[in-house]
Amino acid sequence: MSQTQKAMAQLIAVFHKHSGKEGDKLTLSKSELKDLLTAELGDIFGKTQDKAALDKIFKDLDANADGVVDFQEYVTLISSITMLCNENFKKGK
Rank of each mutant, 00 (worst) to 15 (best):
residue 58 F to E: 13
residue 32 E to M: 00
residue 69 V to P: 06
residue 45 F to P: 07
residue 72 Q to C: 10
residue 40 E to C: 07
residue 36 L to C: 11
residue 59 K to P: 07
residue 61 L to K: 08
residue 65 A to R: 14
residue 25 K to V: 08
residue 63 A to C: 04
residue 62 D to G: 05
residue 57 I to A: 11
residue 49 Q to Y: 12
residue 79 S to F: 11
residue 57 I to R: 03
residue 57 I to Q: 09
residue 54 L to G: 03
residue 31 S to K: 13
residue 53 A to V: 04
residue 35 D to W: 06
residue 71 F to A: 06
residue 40 E to N: 05
residue 35 D to F: 05
residue 62 D to F: 00
residue 55 D to L: 02
residue 59 K to V: 09
residue 25 K to P: 03
residue 41 L to P: 04
residue 36 L to K: 04
residue 50 D to Q: 06
residue 67 G to T: 13
residue 59 K to E: 14
residue 54 L to Q: 05
residue 26 L to S: 14
residue 62 D to I: 02
residue 45 F to L: 12
residue 70 D to I: 01
residue 46 G to K: 04
residue 62 D to L: 08
residue 43 D to A: 12
residue 47 K to Y: 04
residue 55 D to C: 03
residue 39 A to I: 09
residue 67 G to R: 13
residue 76 T to Q: 11
residue 62 D to H: 07
residue 68 V to F: 10
residue 52 A to K: 15
residue 39 A to V: 13
residue 56 K to V: 05
residue 30 K to H: 02
residue 33 L to A: 01
residue 72 Q to R: 13
residue 33 L to W: 06
residue 51 K to E: 15
residue 30 K to V: 00
residue 75 V to Q: 11
residue 31 S to G: 00
residue 42 G to C: 07
residue 77 L to G: 04
residue 31 S to Q: 12
residue 79 S to R: 09
residue 41 L to W: 03
residue 60 D to H: 08
residue 66 D to I: 02
residue 45 F to G: 07
residue 52 A to C: 02
residue 54 L to D: 09
residue 79 S to D: 06
residue 71 F to E: 10
residue 45 F to I: 10
residue 25 K to R: 12
residue 61 L to F: 08
residue 41 L to Q: 04
residue 60 D to A: 10
residue 79 S to H: 11
residue 32 E to F: 00
residue 48 T to Y: 11
residue 79 S to M: 10
residue 45 F to Y: 13
residue 62 D to P: 08
residue 43 D to L: 10
residue 34 K to T: 07
residue 26 L to Q: 15
residue 33 L to D: 01
residue 47 K to I: 05
residue 37 L to W: 00
residue 32 E to T: 01
residue 64 N to H: 02
residue 58 F to I: 09
residue 66 D to N: 13
residue 63 A to I: 13
residue 66 D to A: 00
residue 65 A to E: 15
residue 35 D to Q: 14
residue 30 K to D: 01
residue 42 G to P: 01
residue 61 L to H: 10
residue 79 S to I: 05
residue 52 A to H: 11
residue 70 D to C: 04
residue 30 K to N: 00
residue 44 I to F: 15
residue 42 G to D: 00
residue 66 D to M: 03
residue 60 D to M: 09
residue 69 V to Q: 04
residue 59 K to L: 13
residue 68 V to A: 14
residue 35 D to Y: 06
residue 27 T to R: 10
residue 36 L to P: 08
residue 59 K to T: 14
residue 45 F to D: 09
residue 39 A to Y: 07
residue 55 D to Q: 02
residue 75 V to G: 01
residue 41 L to A: 07
residue 45 F to C: 08
residue 25 K to Y: 03
residue 29 S to W: 01
residue 68 V to M: 13
residue 60 D to N: 13
residue 38 T to S: 10
residue 37 L to S: 09
residue 71 F to N: 09
residue 61 L to G: 14
residue 59 K to M: 11
residue 72 Q to W: 08
residue 26 L to I: 07
residue 62 D to S: 06
